[in-house]
């Protein structure tokens, strides 16, 4: 058996002294990976650029670039679609949903992370299932419910339906953050004489700020981009930017395409601002790995 070890290491006999070199770091799989990545990034940038250019075109041309540039489509689409109103609605919905979501999700996540009690697994399931059920499955009956409550085409209705996916999502984002806070810190505070409320305000609150920020920002991004649910309950008086964008894009034949692209650009600017804010606050890879213990 020594022979095998000897021969197998012998097979890997290095080239003569001094001539041995490591193989180069470029491999076929590497090229394919990086190529794929660049195709993705390039396609994305080109697609965004074509929307941006189209919104600035005076006249549809058959060349690569437009013949002339103008910003008049922006003023025009501002009035046609009431972009100001749409932006206000979008912000209102976003802020309301984030506020309610955090207020409800934090205590829930705390209890689920810290305490064991009968029915805990069932509760966890209750917050996991909305992530794997198609939105339409609950959106359709939820929208009928909203109609019955006469909340359709109101801000309250939109906020209500958006809370349904937002709360369980925020609970799942917050869970690892709460788990990271060593329970002994809380016990130490209790031993020092702090009441429950004080532990929450003075100890847990500050320690959970990163988690709350992460959950809040991610929820906001999702609400602003949330289409299917909002679409079902919104009416002419209560639309968010995405829903109006979809509505405009669907009737593309009847509107000037520059106008639609101007609106798309406004939408893009809004979401990208959000993304920039989000990246300042959240490390995306740390949140993506839900089993946060392994990544931190």
């Amino acid at each position: 058996m020594t022979d095998v070890a000897a021969t197998s290491t012998g097979q890997a006999a290095p080239p003569p002294v001094g001539a041995a070199r490591r193989p180069p770091g470029y491999t076929l799989t590497g090229a394919v990976t990086w190529g794929g990545l660049w195709v993705f990034v390039g396609g994305l940038l080109l697609a965004v650029a074509s929307v941006l250019l189209a919104s600035l075109t005076t006249q549809l041309a058959d060349g690569w670039l437009p013949r002339g540039y103008t910003t008049r489509w922006y003023t025009q689409s501002w009035t046609t679609f009431g972009l100001g109103r749409l932006l206000v609605t979008t912000v209102e919905v976003g802020v309301a949903v984030v506020a309610v979501t955090l207020a409800v999700a934090l205590p829930t996540a705390y209890v689920l992370a810290r305490l064991t009690f009968p029915g805990r697994r069932l509760l966890l399931l209750l917050f996991l299932v909305p992530q794997v059920v198609p939105v339409m499955t609950y959106a359709v009956p939820l929208a009928t419910l909203v109609y019955r409550l006469r909340l359709n085409d109101t801000l309250a209705g939109i906020v209500l339906v958006n809370l349904v996916p937002a709360i369980p999502f925020a609970v799942l984002v917050l869970l690892p953050f709460v788990e990271q806070v060593d329970p002994r810190i809380e016990q130490a505070a209790r031993v020092c004489g702090a009441t429950n409320r004080r532990v929450f305000v003075h100890i847990l609150g500050p320690l959970l700020v990163p988690g709350l920020l992460a959950a809040g920002v991610l929820t906001l991004v999702r609400v602003v981009g949330q289409f299917e649910l909002t679409f079902l309950v919104s009416g002419p008086d209560s639309q968010t930017l995405v829903v109006a964008l979809y509505g405009a894009a669907v009737q593309a034949g009847e509107l000037a395409s520059q106008e639609i692209n101007a609106m798309a650009t406004v939408y893009m600017a809004t979401t990208l601002t959000l993304l920039l804010v989000a990246l300042r606050v959240v490390d995306p890879t740390a949140v993506a790995a839900r089993d946060g213990r392994s990544s931190r």
Binding site: S50, V221, V224, L245, A249, A264, T271, L272
Partner: peptide, 24 residues
């Protein structure tokens, strides 16, 4: 930076990406 760029389409959402794709 790369992660940030890759994140952009996720933030833009399906509606925007679809309408941009239609253009592109």
């Amino acid at each position: 930076a790369l992660i940030a760029v890759v994140l952009v389409p996720m933030t833009l959402g399906t509606v925007f990406v679809a309408s941009a794709m239609k253009e592109f």
